[in-house]
Design a protein around this nucleic acid. Structure first.
Lengths: 202, 202, 202, 202
DNA sequence: CATGAATGAGATTTCATTCAT
DNA sequence: AATGAATGAAATCTCATTCAT
């Protein structure tokens, strides 16, 4: 009798098409026409499933943040101690393993710039950053404590590490020359390890 | 008795207005009308002094890169050894001292995203990054050598440090909550110092 | 054992939903989606029961005209003479009694403007107006005759009175400040009575 | 050197074109394209001089209200007493003399319906109505007083008369059959005169 | 140098209508 | 009867760029 809803798939399809298009053209030049064409849909249908283009962007921000969380969960599954969990986190974010996606990274960079001007994007971006910072601080605090070190600098170290990650995404997207692919994760891990080793005891 | 040409002053005025406007609205929404209004000029005059809007953006990229160089020079003026020069660099980039400019930082973030899609912006952005990397590698190599350490990792460390800086700009522009203002420079310095201390000898 | 067709009920439901939506959003902005939502139906179903949106509008015009007729019939039921019938008419149109409906009035105003451009709406609107005029002229003629007055001006007086009613709907919908609620009917009645009293004898 | 501004003429030209187009097609179907074509301009230019289509409509409301005021002033110029001023007012609004404009009347009807749904139009419409009501009440009070009558009903009478005018515009635009052209003004004048004559003394 | 009106291409968005289920 | 996804035409609005003055 009634038609079977397929909105969820369609929405995911559209969000994915925005990501791909944005990675190539930026947000403004990722026109509804282009996104629709890439998704194999008509422009009108995009506005049937999303109120506005900005709404698709918000859905993408949430999708990327969620995917990052899942990626860490997958990487951390077999971790046995705090040090391994921290390593898993760094690998999940900076490593080249399964699921690394240059398009997603480029889209994330573009989102970071859109967050400068779109309040709603900024809020979603901040929420993702805050969640990451909290997780990272937790991991760092655990590692510091496991080595009998003070955790006073855990927050600042988390922020610095997160900044390094965001910056790595930026440089990887635009100026990949400087650092050989795959060096980011080990270097970040080493910086953290040496920092922790040199911390004063608790 | 010719009238004194004021082109250079006008161009600088326009570039500055683009920077201010971009920091608030992003690049695409920084319309010629808005830029002109902010500069106290008329739309037509902008195209008299610049061939296109993209040209103003390129001029801005170069202006910001040049200003960063100058800021380092000023900070390094009184440095007495390699360690102090490295500290001066970090302070010039991440410190809160004179000349720190939230607008310039936000504009730089937006430029980073435009570099994803505009080849000419990407080239100018890469050139700035490459110049920075070379300078930073030089400073790190000198510091490593001064401590009798191997300089093999200088390039990778330079890249990581640069990434941290770019990421700090991003987070400062959009999600300033995580790290207290002014903590970025000391934390970066400490990460570098401990890394160097732990490096094996040359 | 056939299922009972519910078309008539559905049609009435849809027409009512158009009226409510129009009173708030006007005709053009009363989209099929909005009307359907207000009726608790789906967009597709509206086109199952009506060929087009314009058709729903025509049905509404007729429904409102018919309701006005019924309202007069109900008010005039107990009238004993021509003067009471005329008073019943004025009360039915301008009074605040049972069945007065701000939404219907606002929708009628919107219909009046649509009649400016849609020939079919104009025809239906005119038909309603002509019917009203004829009835009103009849009532006025009877009252004039009952007072031994000439009925020569009955038509013009009917037109003036009808104009006052349409204008009252307009002002009540948009600028209700000027006249206190409930004053329209007595004032109209008084204007008519004094006009009739001052008419020359037949 | 600089270009001579012509915005005022252009704006007036555009407002006039909206009025003509609206009188024929209503507001929604008076597209920017149609208005531009009627004005002999390009669509882009309309948005250069007006922020939005709604802004053109607001300018039209004000222009029509202002024109009505001027028309009364012109008609009342030679009036010698209160009765003549009142007559001048009725003629200015309902008469067929110089400056009567079927297009303006139809546009005003459409504006009245737009006022139902657009708050800014409603505000401008109300302001015009309030101004008219105040003027009319003043004229009626003066006439009543001049005849030694109570002015207690001046406000209600003014409202009724204004409603009659608005309704006459409506019927003239859509259902001109009922009342012969030119009968509205005398009938309105007569209704008022007989009402005043029958009022109790002050 | 400077002005600001003008253009035109292209973007987002709306929406009545259709139709497979 | 009913659903709701899908379409495509058309609307408003934006904006870099041009150009007469």
């Amino acid at each position: 009798m009634s038609r079977k809803p397929n909105s969820e798939q369609r929405r995911a399809q559209i969000v994915q098409a925005l990501m791909d298009t944005m990675a190539e053209h930026g947000y403004e030049k990722a026109t509804i026409q282009l996104i629709a064409r890439r998704a194999g849909l008509t422009p009108g249908l995009l506005h049937y499933h999303f109120h506005s283009k900005a709404d698709i962007l918000l859905a993408l921000v949430k999708a990327l943040a969620g995917a990052a969380q899942q990626r860490y969960q997958a990487f951390a599954q077999d971790a046995q101690d705090d040090g391994q969990r921290l390593g898993a986190y760094i690998d999940a974010r900076l490593g080249l393993g399964e699921g690394a996606d240059a398009g997603a990274v480029a889209a994330w960079v573009v989102i970071g710039a859109e967050a400068v001007r779109q309040p709603e994007v900024r809020a979603a971006y901040r929420h993702a950053i805050d969640t990451e910072t909290a997780l990272l601080r937790e991991l760092l605090s655990a590692s510091l404590a496991a080595h009998g070190k003070s955790t006073a600098n855990a927050q600042a170290l988390a922020a610095a590490l997160l900044a390094m990650m965001e910056g790595t995404f930026q440089l990887a997207s635009v100026a990949p020359a400087g650092m050989p692919a795959g060096f980011a994760a080990p270097m970040a891990a080493q910086l953290v390890r040496r920092f922790i080793d040199a911390e004063p005891p608790a």
